[in-house]
Each structure stands twice: as C-alpha cells, then as structure tokens.
Design a protein around this nucleic acid. Sequence first.
DNA 1: AACAAGCGTTAAAGAACGTTAAGTCACTAG
DNA 2: CTAGTGACTTAACGTTCTTTAACGCTTGTT
Lengths: 216, 216
Amino acid sequence: MAQYLGAKGFAVELRPDGKQGWDTYLKGGFDLLILDVMMPMKDGFTLAREIRQRDERTPIIFLTAKSMKQDTIQGFQSGADDYLTKPFSMEELLLRVSAVLRRAKGVTATKEEAREHLLGRFRFDVRKQVLIIDEQERKLTTKESDLLRLLCEHRNGLLTRNEALQQVWGDDNYFNGRSMDVYIAKLRKYLKDDPAVEVLNVHGKGFRLVARSEDE
Amino acid sequence: MAQYLGAKGFAVELRPDGKQGWDTYLKGGFDLLILDVMMPMKDGFTLAREIRQRDERTPIIFLTAKSMKQDTIQGFQSGADDYLTKPFSMEELLLRVSAVLRRAKGVTATKEEAREHLLGRFRFDVRKQVLIIDEQERKLTTKESDLLRLLCEHRNGLLTRNEALQQVWGDDNYFNGRSMDVYIAKLRKYLKDDPAVEVLNVHGKGFRLVARSEDE
DNA sequence: AACAAGCGTTAAAGAACGTTAAGTCACTAG
DNA sequence: CTAGTGACTTAACGTTCTTTAACGCTTGTT
C-alpha cells in the first residue's frame, strides 16, 4: 500500500504498530491517516480516539478485516471518515483516499479560515494566536504568531531570513534582523516543552522548523 | 556467483570469510550484501547481526545449505531481506537480487529524502548533518556537511574543484577555493578517527574520497 | 636546480547568530 | 494626568560559523 500510494505521488510514512504510529503522528504535518484496526501495541480504534482528542480535522480511514456492522459503527464513532474492508483493490484504496482528501480540503477551505498547525505535542491556532500544549494555553503576540505561522508554512523546508523579514516586518534592514533573532529565541523558549520540535538555523540563509517523531 | 553477477553489470567484491567480509563492509558504499551462513572465522548470522547494529538499511541475502525452518527463522531475525537455499540456479539468484534491490530503492526513495552514507566505521546522516562513529556524534556545519555529501556522492571517483565550489559556494573564485581547502582540512581531522577513510587530493583537478578495507 | 602554481594547516579576523536585559513607545486604568 | 502594563526594539556580550592571512610543503614545468 505504501509503495503504491508513493508511486501515485503521495508522501507516505509507514509504521508497524499503533504506538509508533502515534509517535509519528505527533510530529505533525499529515493530511490523512490510514489505520489498521488490528495492530500490535495499540489497536486502530483506540489510536483514532486519542488522535481525535487533540485534532478534529485530520481525516482518518480505517482498514478492517471484520465486516461486522457492530465494528463499523464503533469505527465511525471514534471519528473515522471512511473505511475499507479487506480484501480491497489498490484502485479502491486510491478512490477513497482521493475522495476523503478532496472533502477535507473543501472543508478547511470553505468552513472557516481557521488555520491550525499541529506541531509535535503542540497545537497552534493561527487565528486565535494561541499555542496549546497539554491543555495549557499560551497567548502569542502578533509578531510571535506571524513568525511561527511562516515557520509552520515552511515546515521542514527553509524559511529565508529575507522572506520572514519582508512578511512580518515589511523591511529587511539590520535592526529588524536582530529583532527577529530575539523572536526566534522567544519561540524556542515556548517550544522547548516538546524536545521533538526544534527551530534550526541555517547559517547565512534562514531558519528551519522541524518536528521529528520520538524514536528518531 | 561473483563472476556471473559481474557479467550482469553489478560491481561485486568477493571475500573468503566472515571476518574479511566485515572489514570490507566497513569501507562502505555497498547496495546489497550476500552472506553465506557457513563461513570460516565468522558465520553469516553473526555477521548480519553485527551489521544491523550500525546499519538498518543495506539489504542482506543469505545463502544457506540447511533448509530447516529453524535456521531460516533465525536468519530473518538477524535482519535478512531474503534467502537462497543451495543448490540454486544463477537465474534464481539474479531474480532475488533484482527484487531486493528494487524494493530497497523504493523504500529509500519514498520514505523521505533521508540520505545516509556509510563510510568505514562512520555513519554520515545528511539530513541531520551529523557524523557518527562508535556511538559518538559530531554535529557538522552546513558547509562541512554539504562538502562531505558531495565527496560521498563521488566516492572513489573525482570531485572536481569547480563542481564543489559551484555546489557549495555558488562561485569558484580564488578565495572560495582557499576556503574550501580549509574545510577539506577540517573534514580530514574529523575523519582521521578511522584511518581507512581518506580524502585524497588530485593535483590541479580536485578531491577523491576513498574507504579501503582494513587489510588493504 | 629553479621557479610558479597548487595544496595543507594553523591562526586570526570577520560575520552571523543566541540570549538576556534594558530602553522606547503606545495604550490604559485609576 | 500619571503610573503601569504589554509589545516591540535596541544594546550588549558571548558563541559559532566562515573567510582571510600567513607560512611551509608538494607537484609539475622549464
């Protein structure tokens, strides 16, 4: 499945059990989750319920061998968006994945402008300018929030010093550059509650926000 | 076997026992390992386990005369990707080799850009910019890492002075050239923990990264 | 052999970044 | 009207990364 979806142009991460799946989910940045119901360490339903506690949006598709109605209902109650009963064809998989993604995209685009970023154990609400971890909310200032948003939008990639200064400060002179460094330090202080999330510097270029899964 | 695979276009290195196999493996740069289970000095299972301790990726195929289930299981537990029971035809060998390589390539290509180079006793993680030897991690700067990556990509071949300067510095003027020489010196200092790994100069042309096995 | 160019290496200088603290400004409560 | 508060900037100092300088050695050429 991973290979097939990869060949179809999706960026896929495959994990062998529910526990590792959760760890990898925590690093954030996923558009869709496909969970097997029968998994070692932690079953798919339990995992889905845990995910839905901190994240209502990311779509989930279940893979299930049991075709019994009871289980299906239980699955959708834990917040699934679709499910596939084994055995299924790759074409069917692709169809459902595409459908769910199309639906999800539509929802986030129209429902509200409410962009929200999942970053390790953090949840960053762009509109409300708050950073949440473990039920604990931290209000961000406008500049803190704008800078963090830009970092999130360039997650794993490079946020150019110049781009950040233009977007947030409107001018990239020396002093604004130093000011930004101060804000980077602030964000690092906030984000250090989850060691898996880091803001890295690329000397002479800019900054990189990365979130690695726990086991890396 | 070595001759056959060589004729089929593979670059093969053949070693007479497990100990020499390990030494040669250490010089790095292999896409696939084929291990005989019954070998003098060090058997295939033991060797595979030692290899898997420092390298999860490189595929391993076992050759075994014993067709007993017990041994097969033990083999896969030490991290084998496939196995061949003697006697077997050359066609069958080629089939399995091709299959394993295709699979491995797929994984490394889709999983993430996470390139990693094995260099003698070193492990060089390109994405994380770290050079690891004996559980000891050394963080590299961007320039150090970029230069070492280029050297790895031209392993045993020639990395042109000009290409390196264009790729890492973006301009090949005199001073950048001198700067690169300083970085070559730094890399040599880091790499001297394993005398089998060397950065050689080709006068007037560029540099060559080589890793020879211990006994060469 | 003599010379120039290329390279090896170390040290110093310079630029970029990390962090803390003090300073400025606007806004608000009393 | 003034003291206080919060957001942002500037200053200051330390650290890290990169470049430049300097000097000696090696290689290739005449």
